[in-house]
Amino acid sequence: MTRRPRPLVYALLAAFVLGSAFPLYWSFIIGSVTRQRASQNPPPLLPGGHFLDNASQVFDRIDFWSALLNSILISGFSALSVVLFSTLAGYSFAKLRFRGSNAAMVFVVMTMAIPPQLALIPLLKEFSNLGLTGTHFAVALPWLVTAFGVFFMRQYLVDAIPDELIDAARVDGCSMIRTFWTVAVPAARPAMAILGLFTFMQVWTDFMWPLLVLQGSDVQTLQTALDQLKIAPGQTLTDMALLQAGTILATVPLLLLFIATGRHLVTGIMQGAVKG
C-alpha cells in the first residue's frame, strides 16, 4: 500500500496549484467583463458574460487567424530545429571523442550566462543590415539552436546511451550519421519531446524579439498582434478586457498542445529525473 502524503503536503500543493492557475483565471475574468468593469475598484473576482463579445472584437481589430498561423509556423519550425541540432550537438558532446570537446562544451554553457536582452540591439542591427527584418525567418533564425538545448541533450544522452551500443552499430556497418539515427535518436526520444515542447512554448510566448524585428511589417505573431490591442483608435487607455480576451485566445492552442502531450511529457521528465 502506498503511503498517503500528510494534510500539510496537500495544503501546500493546493496553494501551489492555485497560485500557478490564478493568473490564467484572472486573465479570463478580466477578458469576460466589459471595459468599464475591468477598470473598477474593487476588481471583479467572478467571470462576467462578455467574453464572446470581447473575443469577436479581438477578431475584428486584429488579423487573429494569420497571426495564429504565423505563430504556429515559427514556433513549430524553431522547435524542430532546436531539437534536431541540439540532439546532434548533444550526442557529439556526450559520445564522440574529438579534440577540444570539453572546451567547446564549456563555451556553450558559458553563453547561457549572457542575458539575451544584451544581444537584442546588435542582433536587430545585424538583421536589418542583412535586410531580414519583417519576415517569418527573422523571428525564427535566432532560435535554430539553443545553448540550453545542447546542454540538456548532452546531459541526457551521456547516460541514456551505453557506449557499447555505439560500438555495436559501428561493427554492424553504420556510418557516423546512421549510428546517430539508429542508436541516439531512439534513446533520445523522451528528451527530444520535452525539449521540443518547451522550445515551442518559449518561442510562442516570446514578445520582445518579434516586436522589434517585425515592427511595421505585415507579418505578426500572436503576441505582437495582441500588442496592437493596447491602444484602441480614439482612446488613451488600454482596453484591458479586450487585451485579456485576446491573451486567452492566444493561450488556448498552447493549453491544447499540453493536454495532448501531457502524459508523454511527464514520463519524459520522470525518466530524466531518475537517470539524473
Partner: peptide, 10 residues
C-alpha cells in the same frame, strides 16, 4: 562482435 552487455538495439 559479441559484447558484455549484449548491446542490442532496444
Amino acid at each position: 562482435m559479441v559484447f558484455q552487455n549484449y548491446a542490442l538495439y532496444p
